[in-house]
């Protein structure tokens, strides 16, 4: 299932990292470079595996580790209600 960012969540990329604001919960999330790239790739067209594959190609790390980390991170984003799956 493709994942997409909720429309009412403002975010900005700042020097390769990201700041994401949840206005409903009044929470601000700082994302490091990898998390920021994942956030950008959550565009409603790709699923978790495709995003993990793209991150693997862009960042140097073990493939299995990247897939596990990205899956975890995307699950956390869903739990935080910042993104949804369709």
């Amino acid at each position: 299932m493709a994942v997409y960012r909720k429309r009412n969540i403002p975010w900005r990329i700042i020097d390769g990292e990201a700041l994401v604001v949840d206005p409903e919960k009044s929470l601000i999330y700082p994302f490091n470079a990898v998390a920021a790239r994942v956030w950008q790739l959550i565009d409603g067209a790709k699923d978790t595996d495709e995003i993990a594959e793209m991150i693997f190609r862009e960042f140097e790390a073990e493939k299995a580790l990247i897939h596990a980390d990205i899956t975890d991170f995307i699950a956390q984003l869903k739990e935080s209600e910042l993104i949804e799956a369709r």
Binding site: R12, I14, D15, E17, A18, L19, V21, P23, S26, I28, P30
Partner: peptide
């Protein structure tokens, strides 16, 4: 603070 951390701290203190 770098730009990201400064923006985060600023947003946390703005009345909304």
């Amino acid at each position: 603070l770098d730009t990201l951390r400064a923006a985060q701290a600023l947003l946390q203190n703005i009345f909304l």
